[in-house]
């Protein structure tokens, strides 16, 4: 009997405490920039696709919900021919972002992805690719990689010497 009265008393006291319920969706919650929500593909500062189709996100994914196919443009720049994320399987663990060597794949503070049909949760590259560098401005993988692509010849990457003249025997 006493314990019931005690409980009622505590419930009564709670009426005077500060409310923490958020009036979602009228009121949006604060999400940190590092929040792990909807996945996007970003572009490098020059506007080119950052993804180089290395398959590391796909292999890091614990639920195997990322599939892609690598291809190359005529100048040797590699990019995904298609890039597909099945968000109905995604667990938003962020391993893909950790694995990405080019900062292409990033998780964003957006979780509003509810759909009535699972099929609508399959996102293709068109749905994923954004028009900016996302959380990591400035980085361009091709500036530090050794392969030659359109607009960047051998020896023009950062910390690269001019190509060796193999016919020279000068010491």
């Amino acid at each position: 009997m006493i314990s019931i009265l005690k409980t009622i008393w505590y419930v009564f006291l709670h009426t005077f405490q500060k409310r923490i319920t958020v009036q979602y969706p009228e009121e949006k919650p604060y999400l940190a920039p590092r929040y792990r929500g909807r996945i996007i593909l970003s572009r490098d500062p020059d506007g080119g696709e950052r993804c180089v189709a290395c398959y590391l996100c796909a292999v890091a994914c614990p639920v195997s919900c990322i599939a892609l196919q690598a291809t190359e443009d005529e100048h040797g720049r590699r990019y995904p021919e298609f890039f597909r994320i099945n968000f109905s399987r995604c667990i938003y663990c962020g391993y893909c972002e950790e694995a990405c060597p080019t900062y292409a794949i990033q998780l964003t503070p957006d979780f509003e992805m509810g759909e009535f049909h699972r099929q609508n949760l399959v996102y293709e590259k068109d749905d994923l690719l954004i028009n900016g560098p996302g959380k990591y401005p400035g980085y361009n993988f091709w500036r530090v990689a050794g392969v030659q692509i359109g607009g960047k010849d051998k020896g023009q990457a950062e910390h690269e010497a001019a190509p060796v003249d193999v016919h020279s025997l000068l010491p």
Binding site: V63, S64, I66, L68, R89
Partner: peptide, 10 residues
């Protein structure tokens, strides 16, 4: 082996 839940999801 990766991509098993996405490769045919289209």
């Amino acid at each position: 082996s990766s991509g098993r839940t996405a490769v045919l999801a289209n």
